[in-house]
Design a protein around this nucleic acid. Structure first.
Length: 420
RNA sequence: GUGGGUGUAGCUCAAUUGGUUAGAGUGCCGGGUUGUGGCCCCGGAGGCUGAGGGUUCAAGUCCCUUCACUCACCCCA
């Protein structure tokens, strides 16, 4: 039979790796708890319309990367390419804005984008997402950024670089866009075909282009920061000084535009050198018009996403996940097997990680299995001869062994192991 | 969607300019030794060399096709 393999760009997370996932996830939950965020879990599929309206029709994500299907009733549904849209949908649907002025949420889980896989980029990948609704003050931008940095550092990451920018708002961006378009049209023939197309479709994306000839042209293009309206400028200045007060290092990158249309004002990314080409492990920004665009009340919002795979790949020297066994029962002979099985079950009910080998193979092979399972103690006993009258409890690390009386065996085992 | 690289045992890799039965380490299974596992010794299983076609007396090796993986572009976490 031919074997069936995973879908391209999808990955199994193996037992040797899941401990690191669990660690990162639990650090996230702890940090976010202390910052006052609560966990929300939203579906991994939504109506396609939700993403079209939030992310933007002309973005790469919507144009060519979404997993979109016609459901059996011919409604179009999409595997989520990001989480913000779903969270906002839920925020609106459950009327959270009416219940409290500020709502702080986070979620984590798989996202799906049909790109060509490479280092740090998969078709199914995992993100931790944080969103803050109902506060348009710069302090909330800083709160979010601080929390992100704090979380990343707690996971053990070093050498992080924070980049920030302001993308302006709906008041000031049109003037800037026009200035960019005018400028680009002047040197249109020097641009790559993609950028020429972008002039019409989405001019700001030109800033992301890495083609050298485009870079030279872009370097002299108008800067968004020179076009900010007084409100946006004040907001951005406040964000920067507030970050300074908190001793957070950052660089202003006026060319950072981000690939989702909904961002306004503050945008930020955290990069790491050890990632190869996909060096951005977290990114986010403000999206003040998005809630109303999706049919909710006029509500400011800001949030970020962290790529878990990328985060983990930046962590140094991860140990592989091992079995964790408190006690291994090596039982020799049918009678001993029977007693051993009962003992194993009792120990497990008492919260002790017990294991045994049901095959009844040689002691040597059972001891090998105990070693493989990383057992702290191994209890050896059998039907005959030297094992008849007593049981030996062996400490696998120190090789010490001690006899355990048959009376009250379970109780003394539990005592020894718990006191370890 | 566009380029480059790589496909040999479960894993990591060997195999002269094309040359006989494709090897080693590790892991797995069994045995010996050790007070009863680790160290050591012996043995065993495990391969259509990614797949298909071609050149040749002869292909893991050269050519074509295809698939998979991988890196990069685009874009993003």
């Amino acid at each position: 039979m031919e074997k069936i393999t995973v879908i391209k760009g999808f990955k199994d997370i193996l037992p040797e790796d899941t401990p690191h996932w669990r660690r990162v996830e639990s650090i996230a939950r702890e940090v976010f708890d202390t910052f006052g965020f609560r966990e929300i879990r939203v579906p991994i599929m939504e109506k396609t319309e939700l993403f079209k309206r939030s992310i933007g029709e002309t973005t790469d994500i919507v144009e060519k990367e979404m997993y979109t299907f016609a459901d059996r009733d011919n409604e179009y549904i999409t595997l989520r390419p990001e989480a913000t849209a779903s969270i906002i949908r839920a925020y609106i649907e459950h009327n959270m804005s009416a219940a409290e002025p500020v709502t702080k949420l986070f979620t984590m889980g798989p996202m799906f984008r049909r790109e060509r896989p490479q280092k740090g980029r998969f078709r199914q990948f995992h993100q931790i997402n944080v969103e803050l609704f109902g506060d348009d003050k710069p302090q909330s931008d800083v709160e979010i950024i601080l929390m992100l940095i704090h979380f990343l550092e707690l996971t053990g990451l070093t050498g992080l670089a924070l980049e920030i920018n302001s993308l302006g708002c709906r008041a000031c961006r049109p003037a800037f866009s026009k200035a960019v378009v005018d400028y680009l049209k002047g040197s249109e023939k020097g641009l790559c075909p993609d950028c020429q197309r972008r002039i019409v479709t989405n001019p700001l994306r030109v800033f992301d282009c890495k083609v050298e000839t485009c870079g030279a042209i872009i370097a002299r293009a108008p800067r968004i920061l020179d076009y900010l309206c007084p409100g946006c400028k004040e907001h951005f200045d406040e964000v920067k000084s507030c970050l300074d007060e908190q001793n957070v290092k950052y660089t202003v990158n006026p060319k950072m535009v981000r690939g989702l249309d909904y961002y306004v004002k503050t945008a930020f990314e955290v990069k790491s050198g050890s990632l190869g080409a996909q060096n951005s492990l977290a990114g986010g920004g403000r999206y003040d018009g998005l809630v109303s665009d999706l049919g909710g009340p006029q509500t400011p919002g800001i949030g970020f996403g962290v790529g878990i795979e990328r985060l983990l790949s930046c962590l140094p020297e991860l140990e592989k996940g091992q079995y964790k066994t408190d006690v291994f029962i090596a039982a020799l002979g049918p009678q001993a097997q029977k007693i051993g099985f009962k003992l194993t079950c009792d120990l497990r009910r008492a919260g002790i990680a017990a294991a045994m080998d049901y095959s009844g193979k040689s002691l040597k092979s059972q001891m090998k299995r105990a070693d493989k399972l990383n057992s702290s103690y191994t209890l050896i006993f059998g039907d005959k001869e030297i094992y008849e009258k007593r049981l030996e409890l062996r400490n696998m690390r120190t090789k010490d062994q001690q006899a355990i009386p048959l009376d009250g065996l379970l109780a003394s085992l539990i005592k020894i192991i718990k006191e370890r």
